[in-house]
Design a protein around this nucleic acid. Structure first.
Lengths: 237, 237
DNA sequence: CCTAGGGAGTTGTTCAACAATCCGACAAGG
DNA sequence: CCTTGTCGGATTGTTGAACAACTCCCTAGG
């Protein structure tokens, strides 16, 4: 039985190998740019010059454009014909659209959840703990990141890879909106407690009440973000 | 100078002809391939050779690859590094994944629906009517298409562009699964009535009951598809 | 002040060549 | 017979260059 001809083993290795070589140049460039956009280094409305980036990144124009396309499909860049690619400027309509989508998905997952054992709730627990820790340190951007991780973990309870990917895309876009406001604290602080409360409800198996609380949660969050975003001073007026 | 031996001339005309409609070349190529994949002309596992398609379609490799990328994003093709693009072969895990995703989204939308006026239900009505019509004609593939349109319209009630796109992608993948079975009738016929019933519930404003019915609906559909798919003879064993 | 047009600069598209990688075949060894 | 190693053909990944097409700004003329 030293012959390791078991079943699940190969699967794991195969997956590891596959994700290891998954690094075409275009994808690596895309990852670089994605981080810059998500971190907010590039303010919305910025044009990404092909010429400039080709010079800096040492890749060909075709490859760079391939990376652009990848990010465009993810909604992290917008493509305007003959004008180039830009960091999108999301408006209130986009905000509403995004919240409708996440409300349907998140509430949909939570509402018909069967079985909330401690193991599967573990990622949620970690995310809440990270948020609380960051809040104590006063690192509000980190709180925002941890809160997003919480909601990603929430969607992950639905155990669908495709749903996870969709949620990741939505949250990436949402992050663009967060960057347009100057004061991150009131945007993230109140939701740390609420995430904790949500987690407690789930741990108690009260999925219906959790879904209701989540619904109210998202409503409050959306409303707040709308007012803040409306009043926020545009960086490039 | 009447002798048109110039170079750029033909090029220009060709370009004009190609871009007569406002879509880019890549999008038109993508549409061509999409139809082939959706219609099931290309069985799962087929590799789409760049060389071959460049020859046939008279487009550059870059353009073709852009089309590939569009379809990959839609889930209609899979891209394997250094191996090319393939029509995906979905297995039972994918089926489960897809149904988990659509269950969360569709039920999520229906459950927290506010206001079901007749105008917004119109697309649902049309889809059901089309399905019933196709059923009368015995055109079962058309019934399947109409049923999908119904569910897309259902998601559209959530009034989120991003949610619509996600649903479209999921249903496109689902269609690939339908093609692996030989007898389309029992797969689509029972659901025409159930869609009608679902629509009636929505028209009556009974969103909660509609969500429950939809949940059961999807459970039955998934179960049936799983057994059928398990028993279906592989085309390329 | 307003409009037409011209030019500079940028993106859109294609092509050909080279590098990196995969696949099947075939041979050597247990 | 089965496994392992290696080779060569075929395919994809990436690059750089070339030219077409478009946008934007600036200027001349009204």
């Amino acid at each position: 039985m030293t012959d390791a001809a078991d079943q699940g083993w190969l699967r794991t290795v195969a997956h590891e190998v596959r994700s290891f070589d998954r690094s075409s140049t275009a994808e690596r460039v895309a990852e670089l740019l994605r981080a810059r956009v998500i971190e907010g280094d590039l303010p919305p409305g910025t044009r990404l010059s092909e010429e400039q980036l080709v010079e800096v990144l040492h890749v060909s124009r075709n490859t760079l454009r391939e990376a652009f396309r990848l990010l465009t499909h993810e909604g992290l860049l917008v493509h305007r014909l003959h004008r180039g690619v830009f960091v999108p400027e999301l408006d209130e309509d986009d905000l509403v659209d995004l919240y409708r989508a996440r409300r349907a998905i998140e509430c949909g997952v939570v509402a018909r959840l069967e079985g909330t054992d401690a193991v599967r709730l573990r990622p949620l627990h970690d995310a809440v703990a990270a948020a609380e820790d960051a809040a104590r340190r006063g690192d509000w951007p980190a709180v925002g990141t941890a809160n997003m991780r919480f909601h990603l973990a929430l969607v992950a309870l639905g155990r669908s890879r495709r749903l996870d990917e969709t949620a990741a895309r939505l949250f990436a876009e949402l992050r663009l909106l967060f960057h347009t406001v100057d004061a991150p604290r009131p945007l993230h602080e109140p939701y740390v407690q609420r995430n904790r409360a949500l987690l407690d409800l789930l741990a108690a198996g009260e999925t219906v009440r959790a879904a209701e609380e989540l619904d109210a949660y998202l409503y409050d969050s959306e409303t707040q973000l709308r007012t803040v975003h409306r009043d926020s001073p545009r960086r490039n007026p």
